[in-house]
Design a protein around this nucleic acid. Structure first.
Lengths: 246, 246
DNA sequence: ACCTCCGCTCGTACAGCGTGCGAGATTTCT
DNA sequence: AGAAATCTCGCACGCTGTACGAGCGGAGGT
């Protein structure tokens, strides 16, 4: 027997914020904003309901009047930062540039708020901002020549790449932050281990020699790598659009 | 001042398992296996050190002899399941099929062990299996004609897509499991909301009409979507390889 | 044979977590 | 004025990761 109240019919997005007058000292919006600040500063583990209460200057459990539980608060926070993603208007640019801006923007948002990444795999997002992005993405890809299921496949390809790319980088940035070292310092510490690994993995060793230390230079390479992949991906989509037999 | 012992020079992979004779009733290998079983069955939240101890038939904190903390255990678990990913030998197939098998295999591994997804963004992986995959991927792409930084860009593109694609699907599967409903049941519950959303988002509404209910049929569509994206992506890479001016 | 040490197990304890509950305060409606 | 709604929050429960140190059994040295 399914639970009496499931998360699909009983969702945050269907419930109006619990505030009518101007009196109350808290509001859903303010709570979400404070939560995002905590999350940005200290990551998922840094957000506890107690700390959130303290930061808002209220009691430990006051937040529970506006939000039924922590999961729901995170759902609100995720959609809030989704609002930072800009999807170009149809007609403002070519679809290629439009898709490029969308994908890069999504990736950048995820890198600004790395805690989102850990939440994306847990529950799908039906918040208003996610929906707005979806709608405008349809417009963009539709104008490009996609339709039906292929349109959603193309859209999934773009967002998957943005998410995956951000995930890899987030892992490194997080470990940088936690260790308090720069990427080059980490590379130096890792050096002997990588050397030993190279001695057991001939192909890796050969590649390592080809690129020298270049692979461990920080952000610039990550951006280059993302752009390279994005260009290949857009090439592939364009090629499909140009196919006579589709 | 950085911490005295950082995670890069002092890593699980550099410390031999704490066992010499045959006496002890526990072993690192056995612990990791049990942890993975718990994680597969109940997700990240389902693994606690106490439950792990109970499942192994030992005391609450016995595990701490073999593993310094939970994070390290998770690191071991992640690399263990990385061992399930098969990277085709060079020469066995074309590079295209090789890359295809690698990417699909990674995605399938992630869908078998969805908890891995939540961990990928937290810390990079330098375990032996990750290294083996890396080495063989270099071999594969090197034989295809990639070299230097472009090789690692191409490799990043493939794994990013595998990760991102698995993330989206994992979100849906997880929410299916938690609600105990099938995807079609969820779609039915969601229907009125989506309809209202469609009424406010014209492009989405138009697309919705195009595909009808097809978009909410479960796994088959997901696989089709992944394959579509993968093919576009490989087309793009192939195109780059064929460029005269690279 | 005894002692010492080492590898290993695990009970206890502590600080922190999410949150259900209900008492209380305050504002609004009748 | 009295009742009802709205909102705040202290307390308590059961859970978490893990530091610490007591205790156990077998191996090696004397």
């Amino acid at each position: 027997m399914p639970p009496k109240s499931d998360p699909f019919t009983n969702s945050v997005w269907l419930r109006p914020p619990r505030t009518r007058g101007e009196q109350p000292s808290l509001s859903r919006e303010q709570i979400v904003r404070a939560a995002i600040e905590l999350l940005d500063a200290e990551g998922l583990a840094g957000l506890s309901m107690r700390r959130l209460g303290t930061r808002l200057g209220s009691g430990t459990t006051s937040v529970y009047w506006y939000v039924t539980n922590k999961d729901e608060l995170l759902e609100l926070a995720v959609d809030e930062v989704m609002g930072e993603v800009y999807v170009p208007e149809v007609g403002d640019t070519s679809w290629r540039i439009g898709a490029s801006v969308l994908t890069a923007g999504t990736r950048e948002m995820l890198l600004r708020h790395p805690w989102v990444i850990g939440l994306l795999g847990v529950r799908p997002n039906y918040g208003p901002n996610a929906m707005r992005i979806g709608d405008r993405t349809v417009a963009l890809l539709s104008a490009a020549g996609f339709s039906g299921l292929e349109l959603s496949h193309a859209s999934a390809l773009l967002t998957s790449y943005a998410i995956g790319s951000a995930t890899t980088i987030s892992a490194m940035v997080t470990s940088m932050r936690q260790s308090g070292m720069s990427m080059t310092e980490i590379a130096a510490k890792l050096e002997p281990r990588l050397e030993r690994i190279a001695s057991e993995h001939p192909h890796y060793a050969k590649w390592r020699q080809e690129v020298g230390g270049a692979a461990y230079v920080p952000e610039r390479i990550w951006d280059e790598s993302f752009t390279f992949g994005l260009d290949r991906l857009l090439d592939g989509l364009e090629m499909w659009l140009d196919r006579p037999d589709r």
